[in-house]
Design a protein around this nucleic acid. Structure first.
Length: 433
RNA sequence: GGAGAGAUGGCAGAGUGGUUUAAUGCACACGCCUGGAAAGCGUGCAUACCCAAAAGGUAUCGGGGGUUCGAAUCCCCCUCUCUCCGCCA
């Protein structure tokens, strides 16, 4: 959520920054300003009346104490009338506030000034490239072929169980997935200073609202029902990313300045409805309804937000380096930026069998956009309450990492070599038939 | 799922319709005192919003609704916590 005071004081700045997203959201600034003015006018009015009533009520108490019943009754009648006006005005003020909130919750974050203005992913500048595309003396297979020949994933039976878009890892495939999860958690906790947490995989709607997934993108997530209580539908949702539970851990809290920065990392499966995405790249493991991910979350002082973002990107890159993968880092342009983010780097790993780069990580500084939504603050040494910056980054997503890994390290004989860093977890150096 | 008891500020804890402007204690900060410290004394110490600022005002005692001129206090609904019972990995 943006700061209404910023919109009030610098509407042109907010309009101009929002416009760079190309979503047309800047159009509602005028309506927002109107609603805000209306709300404040009503508030001032109703508060004046309430102040008068509070004073009168005390006087009534005093009059009754002095047994001046007639005077007290006269004042009571007067206040009854005032009470009706207060109730009516109160309702209006509340409605104006609710309308304003609805609008505010649907307004995306302002892109940071360092973000390139652009329209689509094609405009994203490549910041740096690591390694080179693997060269093969043979035609590299796609991960789908490798998974079938090495029996790493049983696509057909997964579909039988849960429909399309779900995966049944088998044998070496299941072990590889587990080894990757453990390697990444060990890396981030052991080398990068993150504290491991294991959150619930279902969360209440307030968590989705807190990070900006609700109310605008409500159609993309899975709601759960306990037993046959269909009335409970929508009370809980499967997490679309660990960001949802983990970023909300300290919601509605006031942290001490000395507690910052907070670094969390968590493994969770991620569940995504991907509404409207059917038919696009659905074959294989690139776009699925459930995948594993190790997520990084930081809560930091505002002045450190962007240094911490760079460090987080480096932490995610380390994963790809250890696995011997070629990748590039791109900076998302304003048009490609996520709803809550002010600045995002994507890590795209090369998948030789696909002949394309796959997004395996997205690291964002959401500044105080999410902190405002979840009312997460910290108290400075001077005693002032401030909103911290919230950062999230994949460290990394696994299904696509799995794809890049087996496609990159496949051999002419159809086997796949396991990188040295992963061997202690995988307990073998090669996958073969 | 059943029965009972609870939810008040950073913590503890009083407050059952009107000087409560939420007492008191602890913790914390600052000052006095001291050679220095402890103790003692004094002052301060929730959040948000309205107001250009100040002064002031409004709201908030788990959440929502109601009664009333007035609600932490009375009524209704919900959530959560604790104790016991049942079921369960």
């Amino acid at each position: 959520m943006l700061d209404i005071k910023l919109i009030r004081d610098q509407p042109d700045f907010a309009r101009e920054r929002l416009a760079t997203r190309g979503t047309g959201d800047e159009a509602c600034i005028d309506e927002l300003l109107k609603l805000d003015e209306q709300r404040r006018k009503l508030l001032a009015e109703v508060e004046t009346l309430k102040a008068r009533r509070n004073r009168a009520s005390k006087e009534i108490g005093a009059l009754m104490g002095q047994k001046k019943t007639a005077e007290a009754e006269a004042k009571k009648a007067e206040m009854r009338e005032l009470g009706d006006r207060i109730a009516a005005l109160d309702k209006q003020a509340l409605e104006a506030g609710a309308a304003q909130d609805q609008l505010m919750l649907r307004l995306p974050n302002l892109p940071h000034e360092s973000v390139k203005i652009g329209k689509t992913a094609a405009d994203n500048p490549v910041v740096r490239v690591h390694g080179k595309k693997a060269v093969f003396a043979f035609k590299p297979k796609s991960h789908v072929e490798l998974c079938e020949s090495l029996k790493l994933v049983d696509f057909a039976r997964a579909t039988k169980l849960s429909g399309s878009g779900f995966l049944l890892y088998t044998n070496w495939g299941a072990r590889l997935e587990r080894a990757l999860i453990q390697m990444l958690l060990d890396l981030h906790t052991g080398e990068h200073g993150y504290t491991e947490v294991s959150p619930p995989f279902v969360v209440g709607p307030q968590c989705l609202e807190g990070v900006g997934q609700f109310p605008k993108f409500k159609d993309q997530y899975y709601g759960v029902v306990e037993g046959d209580k269909t009335a409970e539908m929508g009370k809980l949702y499967l997490v679309p990313t660990a960001e949802t539970p983990v970023a909300n851990i300290h919601r509605e809290e006031i942290l001490k300045e000395s507690q910052l920065p907070v670094y969390y990392c968590a493994y969770t499966p991620c569940f995504r409805g991907e509404a409207g995405a059917a038919g696009v790249g659905t074959r294989g493991m690139i776009r699925v309804h459930q995948f594993d991910k190790v997520e990084l979350i930081k809560i930091v002082k505002p002045e450190h937000g962007y240094d911490e973002l760079e460090k987080m990107v480096a932490n995610a890159e380390k994963v790809l380096q250890l696995l011997g993968l070629h990748y590039r880092v791109v900076l998302l342009c304003t048009g490609d930026l996520g709803f809550a983010s002010a600045k995002t780097y994507d890590l795209e790993v090369w998948a030789p069998g696909q002949g394309s780069y796959l997004e395996v990580s997205s690291c964002s500084n959401c500044e105080n956009f999410q902190a405002r939504r979840m009312n997460l603050r910290f108290k400075t040494e001077a005693g002032e309450n401030k909103f911290p910056h919230l950062l999230n980054g994949s460290g990394t997503a696994l299904a696509r990492l799995f794809v890049a890994l087996i496609e990159t390290h496949q051999q002419a004989d159809g086997s796949v070599l396991i990188p040295a860093a992963l061997q202690p977890y995988f307990k073998a150096d090669r996958i073969h038939v």
